[in-house]
C-alpha cells in the first residue's frame, strides 16, 4: 500500500511538493508551486523565502523550538509535524500550541509513524491531515477517528471539558 494522505476525513492527493534541502541550498530555482520545507530551513533563509511568491509549508522535527516561528505562523498554509516514532509524543504538544496558543488555522498534518491507533488523539490536539505511511491502510486509519463517543478534557477539537458540557 503506497503512502496516502487523509485530509479532513477524506483520502486526497497531496498537492504539496516536499523539499529536503540543506540550509545553504540554492533557493533561486524554486517554482511558485506549494512547497513544504523543513522549519529549520525557513528560519535560516527567512528573508529569501519571504521574497518568493507561492504557498509555503513548514515541517517541524520533534524537538523544534516552536516559539521561534511564533511571528510567522500566519504565513504558512501547511504545517507538518513529524513523528519519527509514534512513541515520541512531543508533536501532540506542538499541535496543541499551534491551534490553541498561536491560533493556526491552516492544514496541520501528522507525518511519519502514524496510524489507526494514534488518530483519535492526533485529531483531538488539532491535526486535520494525516500522512499514512506506506504499508498502512488509510481506510483503516480513518476508523480510528471515531474510537470514542466523548471525551473528558478540553483540547483543540473541543476546548470545553466534559464538566462544562455534561447534561445533568
Amino acid at each position: 500500500m503506497p503512502e496516502q494522505l487523509i485530509q479532513n476525513g477524506r483520502l486526497v492527493a497531496d498537492r504539496w511538493q516536499r523539499l529536503e534541502m540543506s540550509e545553504d541550498a540554492d533557493l533561486g530555482a524554486l517554482s511558485a508551486a506549494p512547497i513544504l520545507l523543513p522549519a529549520s530551513l525557513w528560519c535560516a533563509r527567512r528573508d529569501q523565502l519571504l521574497a518568493r511568491t507561492g504557498e509555503i509549508g513548514v515541517s517541524l522535527a520533534p524537538g523544534f523550538p516552536l516559539e521561534s516561528l511564533a511571528e510567522d505562523i500566519g504565513r504558512f498554509s501547511l504545517i507538518a509535524v513529524e513523528f519519527p516514532k509514534f512513541a515520541d509524543g512531543r508533536g501532540y504538544s506542538t499541535a496543541s500550541l499551534l491551534r490553541q496558543r498561536y491560533g493556526y488555522r491552516g492544514e496541520l498534518r501528522a507525518v511519519g509513524d502514524v496510524g489507526r491507533d494514534q488518530m483519535f488523539y492526533l485529531q483531538r490536539v488539532g491535526f486535520n491531515a494525516f500522512l499514512i505511511p506506506e504499508g498502512r491502510d488509510a481506510e483503516d486509519a480513518l476508523q480510528g477517528l471515531t474510537d470514542f463517543p466523548d471525551t473528558y478534557q478540553g483540547a483543540a477539537d473541543q476546548p470545553l471539558p466534559l464538566f462544562r458540557r455534561r447534561a445533568v
Binding site: 512513541a87 490536539v125 473528558y152
Partner: peptide
C-alpha cells in the same frame, strides 16, 4: 482521573 483519562496530549510522555 477524568482529566487524565485519554488525555490526547499526554499519551506518549
Amino acid at each position: 482521573r477524568q482529566w487524565s483519562t485519554f488525555h490526547p496530549e499526554f499519551a506518549y510522555l
